[in-house]
Design a protein around this nucleic acid. Structure first.
Lengths: 108, 108
DNA sequence: CATATATTCAACCTGTGGGTTGAATATAGC
DNA sequence: GCTATATTCAACCCACAGGTTGAATATATG
């Protein structure tokens, strides 16, 4: 039972939250900025950010009335580490994984 | 919106299901075998297997009254691919990822 | 100070998740 | 054929997830 993985996997199971993570990969942003592309209420996005925060996927720094949200890649790293355990099921050599990773940098 | 990732992440957010996956990494098994280590009803485990199946993480082949459950690593591969997009956040070179993966083969 | 902006908090609704129990179904073995 | 085994199906419960709206809070700005 790994609470980190439980929360990280659960947080990333929602496509809206994965889009937010993707957004944050380009740099930190305010909640308003993150909410802007979505066709849902600001409050809904605010909740999503809170879920990501609770899972440790993002960090929040307050600057006046604005909250700066930044990606913390550690849980994703943990997920990559977890997934790597099954890497032998799709190839025996890490350079094959490397090739796969390279080919999949853009897609969702 | 990637249904594959939605379902795979959601399925793997449950520690029981991750344990089942881990169990299946050692080879295919019957539902009864999978249920045996857990302190919950057989039916609960049967449900978990169904969730994994729906997510494409396992495949089922019927042999008489026994159902053989086998790991299908493709969705995990997809997750590894997704996570790899953020690899630049923790290192710039894939050989660093490789080292990390090697060091984390055993843990949960 | 008054108002606009950025954000959370709280209450609510509906759907789904994980668990239970009890029954149904199908195959195996004596 | 009868009984035991392997499994799903169905109904139910409770907790949580994702969304809404309305209000509260805090900071900027004219």
């Amino acid at each position: 039972m790994s609470p980190v993985l439980n929360l990280a996997f659960a947080a990333l199971s929602d496509p809206t939250r994965r889009e937010i993570v993707q957004q944050l990969a380009k740099g930190a942003a305010r909640v308003t900025d993150l909410a802007q592309p979505f066709d849902m209420s600001f409050n809904a996005v605010s909740k999503h950010v809170k879920v990501l925060e609770r899972a440790g996927l993002v960090r929040r720094t307050r600057a006046g009335r604005e909250h700066h949200i930044a990606l913390d890649p550690e849980p994703i790293r943990r997920i990559a580490g977890w997934a790597s355990r099954y890497e032998r099921f799709w190839s025996d050599r890490l350079d094959k994984l490397e090739a796969f990773l390279k080919a999949n940098r853009k897609r969702d």
